[in-house]
Nucleic acid binder design. Structure first.
Length: 1005
RNA sequence: GGGCGGUUAGCUCAGUUGGUUAGAGCGCCUGCCUUACAAGCAGGAUGUCGGGGGUUCGAGUCCCUCACUGCCCACCA
């Protein structure tokens, strides 16, 4: 089955050929393959006529049009396996993308994968370890070749999984962040930043992961509170301190990390601290610092405000090479920086007894030695926050090392190296400083980027305002190697686009490329523009570097992502994109170019941040806990559509999703329901054909017939409301009206990222209204025994039309099921290659009338009331009974005209109209009518009394409350008229119900 | 140390700018194999909206406070 071509397997619309139960496993893979093979969602390269994207809020998207909708897939790690977070993320993006596409917009969703420096390198290193080899045993080039081989072999796993989800991405534009094209762009970005003097190299304290043996950024460090100790250590004064008898001969410092004392180069006390005032300037003999049996190192006691007299002993040891604060003190006092650890955090002090010890072993030894020397004064319990490497879980070792940094709070220097390039930057006012961070702040502050939920605006601002320079170098092998060459002779740095042969400063040929690579987030931060071809043809003049894709699709419309990468990625994209894109000109519409504004330089106009997918008990999923739900597993069990719908129906902004399989089971049932509704329809279409009806499907929902979703759209995109013949039955008018309203609701919800509301509206419509009511009612009309019956013809046409439209409405949420049925409906000759290329139902597509809805509401209420009464009276399901009805003229007329509905749906055999109120124990009252079921059967008096008593109490409560309010002059005076009027009406109705209930209760005796 | 959320039916969650009797799905109870569907149909029960106070004609919704709970940021040895 699955190897058949979909168009051929699209079954004839005969109920007999649809299996009774819906089985997603036999259709989903087939359509997933079909969408990819047919390149249905590829967007052809834009031409000059592509209109540029107007800026506007999400509401703007409600208008139909041909604007591009562009969205970038957050690239998963190439080593990754799909998890529930991906699935939520992609479901949301796919719903929106399919929705926009079906609205006639050019919907471009660009997929890709991230080379994920650390993750990938670690994975391959692990593989090597299993083979008894290691990265260092291979050469750098051999190792990188090995990673590429791995990528070739396994790198497509995650994208293959994506295809299974039905993600409607443009595979022709798929990228990998280490592709040649993107590597060139990354290099170019680095070089320009260097030329603008925004990248610098320097020795600073960085977060060092001793396991990975690389620097990591602040963001890659998690702070964990742990119980630890504060050690008070005595440092003797070098001169013995015998200045005067009461003068101390030592100073006691407090530290949590005694092993770092080997790197101490000073002791700091606060200048206002009276205890130590006369020690300032003295030297101490650093204990345990003797190398090869030599004398102890002597270090000064100095005054620095950093020392807090309240904390510990008020004296702090200063280790400039291993603590950021100490580093700062060192800078202020020109202290030497003594790096005592190697890159694996083992003591690196040849000649010292601690040489070669791991940092924790060194701590133990040092504490023991201090104790033995009587220098360990006190050990106090102390909770400290330990920096933990996110990637490896090991304790981060702050370490002085040479790294590359991106200056984020600095204005770019004029480049000068670009050949006469005109600067398009900064034409807009309002950006005070033009630094990377300032632009990133302005972009959000000025509303060019909107966050949903909007509280992330604040979080973003807070972070961006306090941002530090970004350490962008990593001591890894897998990644974008920094295009800088160090000179062996003069030590100068040569940064160049093409591999240089000589030092740019002294001309020496003794140059070597930096061994560092760039932080993965540096390259992914460039994606919003590099994915569209930036920087373009490097040989072309600067002003024409606007690639066609960039011109057509930048800025992207939306970014959908999780809050966990808000700073890692979202913020970096805003920083880097605004910075670089301000220099890329805009088409001015008259064939020329003009500077780009900040609004046009932002990477996206909106950011939708979704929550976490948790397990059914709201626990965070983790491998350790073993509660990780594998999307592929759950999809195999319930079908992709059901899982997608589960996620969508719970995806309300700002709330985590507790993924509950029971719910997915419910949505599989929903899919099955629709499947069976289709079977019902097909069965009737068959009957109609057999009875000689001319069954022809209109193609009015189709917006594209030929090529894949291109930029061009057929002119007949808009569709006029379906015209209903005069004698169209009520239920058909009603279902069209409901479809219209629901279509409107769905559009409004999706525009606000309310996937839950949209999904629930469709669910309720499809099941609660179309299936539960409409399908039951059409059974009254479909009468194939009578040839050329008007009711039958109109109803069948409407039924088909509504069902087809409802499928389109549902298709962004359940693309597989709807595709399958839609193709089946057209019996192998569909008007488009996919339902995804048809028009999305709009409220204005269908005739709608409030009167129709009100009429059906009344009939539904009547039917429901009769059903309840029958149940209460224990009328056997199959037995029809007469009813008595007391009501106003409108309801009576309505009931008279639709007695057949009551017969079918409430098993009413006859209707007796009554002039009297009906209050017997076989009767029920609503504000619109009294109805009684005529059935001779002793009712359960006790149960009836209980029910009536309860009702009475409820009515009474309402009456008391309402009457009190209506008697309140302040309420009458201040509340708006429609509220008062509504309350009056409700009170009157409740009064009537109360009276009737009272009478009925009294009648029970 | 700062900052941000959450608390509504047994469970998971909705509840628009305050406005007439607070909803959904699942679960639960009862009755039905009614030829699209038992993955179904019909009916039913279930809430002092975390506690307290305030503003208001009117509060699940706004303000204060307390409790519990989750998260983010932060260079105090």
């Amino acid at each position: 089955m699955s190897d058949e071509k979909p168009t051929e397997s699209a079954i004839d619309s005969s109920a007999g050929s649809l299996p009774k139960a819906y089985d997603p496993s036999i259709i989903e893979q087939r359509w997933a393959d079909y969408w990819v093979q047919e390149r249905l969602f590829d967007v052809p390269p834009p031409n000059e006529r592509v209109p540029s994207r107007p800026t506007g809020g999400p509401r703007e998207a409600l208008k139909e049009g041909v604007n591009p909708f562009t969205i970038l897939l957050p690239p998963p790690n190439v080593t990754g396996r799909l998890h529930m977070g991906h699935m939520l993320n992609q479901t949301e993006m796919d719903i929106l993308t399919r929705w926009h596409r079906m609205r006639g917009e050019t919907a471009l969703w660009v997929p890709g994968t991230d080379h994920a420096g650390i993750a990938t390198q670690t994975m391959v290193e692990r593989q090597l370890a299993e083979e008894g080899s290691s990265r260092k045993q291979l050469s750098r080039d051999a190792f990188i070749a090995r990673v590429w081989k791995w990528k070739q072999q396994y790198g497509s796993a995650i994208t293959e999984q994506m295809k299974r989800l039905g993600a409607s991405v443009d595979w022709s534009r798929e990228y990998f962040t280490m592709d040649d094209r993107l590597s060139i762009a990354v290099k170019e970005a680095f070089i320009r930043l260097w030329e603008q003097d925004l990248i610098y190299r320097g020795a600073y304290i960085v977060n060092w992961d001793p396991q990975l043996q690389t620097a990591v950024s602040d963001l890659e460090v998690e702070n964990e509170e742990r119980a630890g100790h504060l050690y008070h250590i005595r440092y003797p004064l070098a001169d013995g301190g015998a200045l005067s008898p009461d003068s101390p001969d030592s100073i006691v410092v407090a530290t949590t990390r005694p092993e770092t004392m080997l790197g101490d180069t000073a002791i700091a006390v606060n200048p206002i601290d009276e205890r130590y005032k006369n020690l300032i300037g003295k030297l101490v003999a650093l204990p345990l610092s003797s190398v090869s049996g030599g004398p102890a190192r002597e270090i000064p006691i100095l005054a620095d405000d950093w020392a807090n007299p309240e904390f510990g002993t008020g004296a702090v040891k200063v280790t400039p090479a291993h603590d950021p604060n100490d580093f700062a003190i060192g800078q202020r006092h020109s202290l030497p920086q003594l790096n005592i650890f190697d890159e694996t955090a083992h003591v690196n002090l040849p000649g010292s007894p601690y040489h070669g010890l791991d940092r924790f072993a060194a701590r133990k030894r040092i504490l023991a030695d201090l104790e033995a020397a009587g220098l360990l004064v006190a050990v106090k319990d102390h909770t400290l926050t330990l920096p933990i490497s996110q990637r490896t879980g090991v304790v981060i070792e702050p370490r002085l090392s040479m790294q590359w940094f991106l200056a984020v709070n600095k204005s770019p220097a004029k480049t000068g190296t670009e050949s006469g390039a005109p600067s398009f930057r900064g034409a807009e006012g309002g950006v005070p400083q033009n630094s990377i961070a300032a632009n990133a702040i302005a972009a959000v502050r000025d509303g060019h980027i909107r966050f949903t939920p909007d509280n992330y605006t604040k979080i973003y601002n807070q972070w961006m305002t306090n941002i530090h320079d970004w350490c962008i170098s990593r001591q890894l092998w897998w990644g974008h190697r920094i295009p800088a060459w160090h000179c062996g002779k003069c030590a100068a740095i040569t940064v160049a686009r093409d591999t240089p042969t000589a030092c740019g400063t002294c001309g020496s040929a003794d140059i070597e490329q930096s061994t560092d690579v760039l932080d993965t987030w540096f390259s992914s931060g460039l994606l919003p523009f590099t994915a569209f071809g930036w920087p373009g043809d490097p040989l072309a003049p600067e002003t024409t570097k606007l690639t066609a894709d960039l011109a057509a699709f930048y800025p992207t419309s939306l970014l959908v992502t999780g809050f966990d990468i808000l700073f890692f990625w979202v913020a970096r994209m805003i920083m880097l994109s605004t910075h670089f894109m301000l220099d890329v000109p805009m088409r001015d519409g008259a064939g020329g170019l003009r500077p780009r504004t900040l609004a046009e330089a932002v990477p996206f106009n909106a950011v939708y941040i979704h929550a976490l997918v948790r397990d059914a008990n709201r626990e965070k999923m983790s491998k350790m806990k073993g509660n990780v739900i594998d999307p592929i597993e759950i999809i195999t069990k319930y079908g992709t559509d059901a899982v997608r719908f589960t996620l969508a129906s719970q995806a309300s902004p700002g709330t985590d999703i507790a993924f509950n399989e029971a719910r997915t089971e419910g949505y599989r049932a929903f899919a099955n329901k629709i499947w069976n509704a289709a079977r019902f329809l097909f069965m009737n279409l068959d009957r109609a054909r057999e009875a000689g009806y001319n069954v022809k499907l209109s193609h009015n929902g189709v917006i594209s017939t030929g090529a894949a979703g291109g930029v061009e759209r057929p002119p007949n995109f808009s569709s006029a409301p379906t015209e209903l013949p005069d004698h169209t039955p009520l239920e058909t008018r009603w279902i069209f009206a409901r479809l219209s309203l629901v279509s409107g609701e769905v559009a409004r919800s999706l525009a606000d990222y309310r996937f839950d509301e949209a999904a629930n509206a469709i669910y309720q419509f499809f099941w609660g209204e179309f299936c539960d009511w409409y399908l039951e009612l059409v059974k009254l009309r479909l009468n194939f025994d009578i040839p050329n019956n008007d009711d039958t013809a109109i109803t069948l046409a409407s039924l088909t039309s509504v069902f087809e439209a409802a499928l389109r409405l549902l298709s962004p949420f359940m693309p597989f099921l709807t595709e399958e049925i839609w193709h089946a409906l057209y019996a192998g000759t569909p008007p488009a290659k996919s339902i995804a290329l048809t028009r999305y139902p709009q409220a204005s597509d269908f005739p709608s009338s409030e009167l129709t809805i009100a009429a059906m509401d009344t009939l539904q209420e009547l039917i429901t009331t009769i059903r309840a009464l029958r149940k209460e009276l224990s009328v056997p399901e199959k037995e029809a009974t007469p009813i008595a009805l007391h009501a106003g003229a409108r309801v009576l007329a309505l009931t008279g005209a639709h007695a057949d509905m009551l017969g079918r749906l409430a098993r009413v055999s006859a209707i007796e109209f009554s002039n009297e109120q009906l209050t017997g124990n076989n009767a029920r009252s609503t504000p619109n009518f009294d109805v009684a079921v005529v059935y001779e059967r002793q009712i359960d008096v006790a149960a009836e009394r209980e029910r009536l008593t309860k009702d009475l109490a409820r009515h009474e409560k309402v009456l008391t409350a309402n009457e009190a309010r209506l008697a309140d002059e302040k309420f009458i005076g201040k509340a708006p008229a429609h509220i008062v009027e509504g309350l009056r009406k409700q009170t009157a109705e409740t009064r009537t119900l109360y009276d009737k209930t009272k009478t009925a209760l009294d009648a029970l005796g």
